[in-house]
Design a protein around this nucleic acid. Structure first.
Lengths: 269, 269
DNA sequence: CAATACAGTTGCATTATCTGCAACACGGAC
DNA sequence: GTCCGTGTTGCAGATAATGCAACTGTATTG
């Protein structure tokens, strides 16, 4: 007898049901997303949990170095242990090392901010940026999460992902951030087709009203999409002319980085 | 002031008692410490837990992007989510950015491997390294954990920590790694006094038999010890002469980095 | 200066989740 | 074929997490 495929318990876990660990990870993300140190009660409110539970979980996380307590305020920030875990990963990611000089080159030649993002599940994550001379700060800062449907790096990478990934993204709902955000599935699919055809993705105020960006994907030696680079600028810098100028620069840099990672042009989806 | 009066339950958490989250974090550390992708049963053996429990926890972690499954083997490695959390931290840590050029300079002038470590609870953690021309690989690699009592960066930072930290380290037990490892509390205290006096720490085969290192601490603008830099070499490169040559280089680099972080010589413990 | 409000922590009884077991599916070795 | 090993799942019992209420300490208020 073949046991039929019920949606069973571990599947529930995978779908984000209530587990203690799940709650702890959400907590960690909230601490990470906060600009300033964050207190127990504030976390509890955002998680819709009781302060006592949060306090105890934080105690465990603190003891393990995943969060740290600000000496003066007693509030929490992420801890060094995360760096310990991530730094090996980062060191092993060739793309970071290879891309950095090209980011600097891009930032200099475009006089805007250049950044590198990785794909994570259903979103892009910035991990490196080089500020251009007069550029806005904090845009494209490392650790920032870029939704797939309304950012340049997000759309660039999503356009190369298998259909299942697009479905996941659609299932999450296309949240509206500005009046330019694409919130309709078919429109997004059209946009992604367009991105594939021209080889770069645009975002003009779809996520943050004042910023625009141009992005292109990076492939590794096996042809997989591993990252994307972007040039981010204030919306008022963005014109058809700048698009014509910048797009080739971004695509060239991305292609060069891909080549240096051993990519030979064969696209394995 | 946190004058804790009772030794109560959350203290138990802090002391690493069994909690579900605690187990998940240990699991994460094991995945992170593994050189290659690691399977459910192997993790279960190391944690002395049942494979079923590990499997379920991994399921949650995977869904959250904290671990990823190697496509071919089905084994686990750390996930991009950790980079997402850590990269902001890293970007905000001035010391990393400031230190990098000096690491490169050190690596070049000494023709050995230069590295930067942060302090985490009771150990030092490498987060950056520059390989010297002919140097051994993987020593001082990012993510590597350096015990406080038998590594150069560990001893350098521990020597500047308050007594309570030393007590914590002693309480963990001074594990023996080689026949040169200091395993006796009083001997370690003497060694630390010596480190404070001469301004740099040595490790000659106390952790890994074949490697030696010289380290000095970095202070931030408030005089706090935030990091240490080290030059690591094969043990057979290490002589009294090389110590005399390298120690000033390391101390100078550390002092320069401290100065660039705004440290003015006032040591606030 | 008391009165008040809020943050953070803890003990305890209840409840809900997690664990361990046993069984199963799958794959490889012989 | 059998015999390992790995990974996953359902289930019932074991265990750890929860929510409450109480308490402390620290701001904020009148």
């Amino acid at each position: 007898m073949n046991s039929v495929k019920h949606p069973p318990s571990a599947r529930d876990r995978a779908r984000g049901e209530v587990t203690t660990v799940q709650r702890a990870l959400n907590l960690l993300r909230i601490v990470g997303a906060s600009e300033r140190p964050i207190g127990v009660n504030e976390i509890a409110r955002r998680l819709e949990q009781h302060a006592s539970a949060v306090s105890r979980t934080l105690s465990t996380l603190e003891h393990n170095g995943f969060v740290e307590r600000d000496e003066e305020t007693g509030r929490f920030v992420l801890g060094v242990e995360l760096i310990a875990l991530a730094s090996r990963l980062l060191a092993e990611l060739d793309v970071v090392r290879v891309a950095r000089p090209y980011l600097e080159e891009l930032a200099e030649s475009t006089r805007e901010t250049a950044s590198l993002s990785l794909w994570n599940k259903t979103e892009a994550i910035n991990i490196e940026h080089v500020l251009g001379p007069g550029s806005i700060k904090h845009i494209a800062a490392p650790g920032r999460r870029n939704p797939a449907h309304c950012t340049a790096t997000g759309k660039a990478m999503l356009s190369q992902m298998p259909g299942s990934t697009l479905e996941e993204v659609l299932a999450l709902g296309l949240e509206r951030y500005t009046d330019r955000t694409i919130t309709e599935g078919n429109a997004l699919e059209r946009e992604l087709r367009c991105v594939r055809e021209r080889g770069y993705a645009l975002n003009v105020g779809e996520f943050i009203p004042e910023t625009a960006a141009i992005a292109a994907v990076i492939h590794d030696r096996r042809g997989r999409v591993v990252a994307a680079i972007a040039v981010t600028m204030p919306v008022f810098h963005f014109t058809q002319q700048s698009e014509r100028q910048l797009a080739p620069l971004v695509m060239n840099a991305a292609a060069t980085i891909s080549r240096r990672l051993g990519h030979h042009g064969a696209q394995t989806i």
